[in-house]
Nucleic acid binder design. Structure first.
Lengths: 336, 336
DNA sequence: AACGTTTTTGGGAACGTTTGCACAGTTTTT
DNA sequence: AAAAACTGTGCAAACGTTCCCAAAAACGTT
């Protein structure tokens, strides 16, 4: 802001002290006498002194802020994760800067670079569905930027990661469909690049195996853009329907809602006949028609855990070399 | 970030120039010869020089970033506004910092103060439903921080504002209910503090007047917390139902979905008998059951317009004294 | 009384920029 | 040929902090 506000210098001048003394008094350093501290604190209070974070960042070469990259804040899963992140970050006096990749690799990279140049102290990121090449992240990491991945994590990147138990979530959802009598269960999923895609496919397959149902590759449809374009979904639905599925298991929030939308739009007559189970954190799922069985991820908690890990990396005195991948359980909410 | 990156000084040393020359060359100032400029630019490119925005902010006393305060990013209306804001801001080389008030006055004030201390160049804000006292914003504004309000705007604050045509939106929605034969139309709305609450109430009343329907104050229910707590909504529904409304007009995104949810939960047998029309920007509205008529706000555009106004204030050479309140039309999407 | 310790304070450089001013060298004007 | 104007560059201060190092003040110990 361009307007004048009182600085440490002003306080020093007014009190006849040096800036160093004032700075130390404000930070409650042991070297300063109680008397002086009180004096300074009282005056600072009086003139409503606020430390300038920009100057502090420049000097300390850190910003007390962490960057977040998600594909869309409009996605309930991500906005819940963000709330979890904020809850921890604010507690520990970090600020958060949110960026959206809109599932675009280019945008993701642009945002990360921008954040990095703004001296974020650490990065929390869920990869875009387009992202294949994460060398740019490796570079930053190698230069010392702490990174924690969540939800969509790369395989070959040694750092902390936080994910949902995607295998089990998918298994449970698929099993639920099977137990309610479905036998031709399609699987609509995200880009093949994503970790979550692979894990969820495995869960789906495992459930089929358990109930001796043959896995048919043609029943699996990938959406490269994560359902960002409705055309993509309508196409997938169009290809799937001739195979006469009696159930569909869908592996992401946006795809789940998008798929139901596409079904209703293109084939309203069958929309209610196909059982749907899908990952979604929408809090509106109870309003949906047709209703569905949903797999809810512990989004808020995921944000919290990821942030705790990140802050521990940021504040570690020596480089961290032991990394964890935390796996959080999902919750199956059955169709009413 | 704590890791080393090349600075203007490094370039200067390497090229045997002074930092001033390098700085000017990078900023393409007329005083520097083409030759030197080329040299500097080439070298900067080579070492992948990135200006340190922190240092720049400190020196220039501005940050090229604008702050946003909304109540919830999980709200479709707000996330669309944010997308609109970003689309303009990035174009003009501003970065955005998003904060959520969660409809709490305290949180709102905290966030604003935090943003202000981080030297944002301007503020875009939609007030929380709790907010009554905006003196803290007046102070900042008086000190020189440009502020543009959108959606939830205060009455007595001279600056740019961007709102939807709430009166017309409400009128249209209410009229639609009347034309489909409803006569006992309840109105569920936000906190009385909010500008949108008043304007939407007026639109509702005007439609009643036009069709000679008596206005009954007991049919209007206010939700102080904007529907953040489900108890609040269930209470409102409980009080409304004994009055036997055959239609409900709801005045905000969160309230609309929350009300349907409360209806389904507490009185599933009547949920489908009451016609609902409500403000919502949810892109899932087609999936809802019961289905409803929705009033969509031009959220993306609202973000764009507000940002353009804000940036014009930020970049104005002399204090702006002429302010506009832009009013954007809403769209009525009738129930199928 | 002289010295060593401990406690408290101040001076000043540094973080990476931007920019007013001065200055040297070149060109134009008188 | 001297004066004026213009070009291109560098010096140094400033933005608001933090922190190393030194200095001063207060206190103890012989």
């Amino acid at each position: 802001m361009r307007f004048e506000t009182s600085t440490i210098k002003d306080i020093a001048k007014a009190l006849g002290l040096s800036t160093s003394t004032v700075s130390r008094a404000l930070r409650d350093r042991y070297e300063i006498s109680e008397e002086t501290k009180k004096l300074v604190l009282a005056y600072a209070e009086k003139v409503n002194y606020r430390a300038n974070p920009i100057a502090r960042s420049l000097k300390e070469r850190r910003s007390y802020s962490i960057g977040i990259i998600v594909s869309e804040i409009a996605n309930n899963f991500f906005s819940q994760v963000i709330n979890g992140i904020e809850s921890i970050a604010y507690d520990k006096d970090y600020h958060v800067i949110i960026s959206q990749s809109h599932e675009s690799y280019k945008q993701e990279k642009l945002n990360v670079d921008h954040l990095a140049s703004r001296s974020i102290d650490g990065l929390l990121i869920a990869l875009s569905s387009e992202t294949q090449d994460i060398d740019y992240l490796r570079d930053l990491y190698a230069k010392g930027l702490p990174i924690v991945f969540f939800d969509r994590v790369p395989e070959d990147f040694e750092t902390h990661k936080v994910i949902a138990n995607n295998f089990k979530g998918s298994f449970d959802a698929t099993e639920h469909l099977i137990l309610s009598g479905k036998r031709t269960i399609a699987h609509l999923t995200n880009s093949e690049n994503l970790s979550i895609t692979k894990e969820r496919l495995e869960g789906y397959k495992a459930a089929l195996v358990k109930y001796h149902i043959e896995f048919r590759p043609e029943l699996v449809k990938y959406c490269q853009h994560g359902g960002m374009h409705s055309a993509e979904l309508e196409q997938a639905v169009k290809e799937l329907l001739p195979l006469k599925p009696d159930g569909i298991f869908i592996s992401s929030d946006r795809l789940t809602t998008g798929c139901i939308m596409a079904l209703k739009k293109t084939n309203p007559e069958v929309a209610h006949k196909i059982a749907i189970a899908g990952f979604t954190n929408s809090n509106l799922v109870e309003l949906f028609s047709p209703s569905l069985t949903s797999v809810k991820q512990p989004a808020f908690e995921m944000g919290q855990v990821a942030t705790e890990l990140l802050i521990s990396m940021i504040e570690a005195k020596r480089p961290v070399t032991e990394f964890e991948t935390k796996v959080l359980d999902t919750e199956l909410v059955k169709k009413r």
